[in-house]
Nucleic acid binder design. Structure first.
Length: 208
DNA sequence: GAGAAGATCTCCT
DNA sequence: GGAGATCTTCTCA
């Protein structure tokens, strides 16, 4: 169901200069905005994962800086986009300050605006499965490595804006998906009631 | 330069 | 539920 977008002003840098887990939870229900030429695609963020730095064995930054993970060590509020499994781009948001590596992976969004364009970018896919995975949402939004290190606090081709005020929602936390180390950390967060999360986990707990 | 791993997705059974 | 696709990135020699 379509909804009015009251404001598409980007969230300020201060939003990202907090603990990574805090930013991860705060990103839920915010809007991810992608501008392609004249088209504006908007999705409500419904699932994220937090990744740390040198202390998090599941993180790309665990072994220190490399050319690939440099955005994680840079300024907060920027995009860190990497290519994986030969097929997929994954979109992260950097936190919490320059020199401290960590980021939040955006795993799933709920399409709000620009559905036609998303369907063109991912044809023959049911609406609920357009953006319910990190590789799926980047494809549906036309996100690739050319947007790596884009400043998400400015109105450019990609940014995050405040989500709609609405009914309360319940945050669920669970182990992160697709990793073999650091699984004991419950750093995956998603909106319980959303139909657009990538998968439900048996070992999940509500976070409230 | 070679080999292995990988924050995934889709198809097939 | 399982396995293949596909290729970038990193490590090691």
């Amino acid at each position: 169901m379509p909804m009015m977008v009251k404001s598409i002003k980007p969230l300020p840098r201060s939003f990202y200069t907090r603990r990574t887990v805090t930013v991860a939870k705060a990103l839920l229900n915010q809007n991810l905005v992608r501008v392609i030429r004249r088209a504006v695609l908007i999705g409500r963020i419904v699932e994220v994962e937090a990744y740390g730095g040198l202390d998090d064995p599941a993180s790309h930054a665990y072994h220190g800086p490399t050319p690939r993970n440099m955005p994680m060590f840079g300024q907060p509020g920027h995009a860190y986009i990497y290519f994986t499994y030969g097929n997929h781009y994954c979109l992260n948001v950097t936190t919490p300050r320059d020199g401290i590596a960590s980021a939040v992976l955006i795993r799933a969004i709920e399409p709000l605006k620009g559905l036609d364009m998303m369907k063109r970018l991912r044809p023959d896919v049911p609406e609920q499965q357009l953006t319910n995975g990190p590789g799926k949402l980047t494809k549906a939004l036309g996100v690739d490595k050319s947007l790596n290190e884009v400043d998400l606090t400015k109105q450019g081709p990609l940014y995050v804006s405040k989500g709609a005020e609405g009914p309360e929602f319940t945050i669920v936390r669970s182990p992160r998906i697709g990793i073999t180390l650091g699984v004991e950390r419950l750093w995956r967060f998603y909106i319980k009631s959303s139909q657009y999360v990538s998968r439900n986990t048996s070992s999940a707990h509500t976070d409230q």
